[in-house]
């Protein structure tokens, strides 16, 4: 089937029910989305499907056929950072960093819909992304900085 990831369409020969996460990681070698739990408990695998955040472990290859999949590699790069990535760097959010691809993708989707989020909204939107290192205080700060950057841009 044909899968479009970060604007590139590729033919992949996979089962309909293979989770998008494993199509990305093992077939297309896109490693930004991480495997953490496989059951939408941690959010490390978060990508955007048609612009909205989705846990790639829980959506199948068949379901994203004909839709636009964007991974963290697709929203920005070290040379051309997304505002959320800039904020994550300024606040030095990451410790081990393994959850941060998912955190950033959740935050980017959230901020695209809610450019001036309240603290309460942030707490609702971001609590489904698990961080074992406990970087939550910095995630909160970085989201506010990113929101300001995105409003100015």
């Amino acid at each position: 089937m044909r899968i479009t990831v970060n604007g590139v369409t590729t033919n992949v020969d996979v089962e309909d029910e293979m989770p998008l996460l494993w199509v990305l990681r093992d077939e297309l070698k896109v490693k930004g989305p991480k495997y953490g739990c496989g059951i939408a408990q941690c959010g490390a695998c978060t990508v955007h499907v048609d612009g909205l955040a989705v846990r790639s472990c829980s959506i199948t290859a068949k379901q994203v056929e004909g839709r636009d999949v964007t991974t963290i590699e697709g929203i920005g790069s070290p040379d051309a950072l997304h505002a959320v990535q800039e904020a994550w760097i300024e606040h030095q959010v990451a410790q081990c960093g393994y959850c941060q691809s998912g955190q950033i993708m959740s935050a980017a989707s959230f901020l695209s819909m809610h450019p001036s989020p309240s603290d309460d909204q942030i707490d609702h939107a971001m609590s489904a992304n698990l961080c074992r290192c406990g970087t939550y205080p910095r995630i909160r700060e970085a989201i506010k900085t990113a929101a300001a950057k995105m409003r100015e841009a």
């Binding site: 990681r25 093992d26 070698k29 490693k31 930004g32 989305p33 991480k34 495997y35 991974t71 963290i72 590699e73 920005g76 790069s77 070290p78 950072l81 990535q85 994550w88 760097i89 030095q92 959010v93 990451a94 960093g97 393994y98 941060q100 691809s101 950033i104």
Partner: peptide
């Protein structure tokens, strides 16, 4: 500024689980 902060904020850091080699099996 930590040396790994940019790769960790852009999904470009390679962790052990991300390694890939030609012909690798799983």
């Amino acid at each position: 500024q930590r040396l790994d902060i940019i790769p960790k904020s852009t999904g470009t850091l390679t962790y052990g689980i991300d390694l890939d080699f030609e012909g690798m099996l799983y």
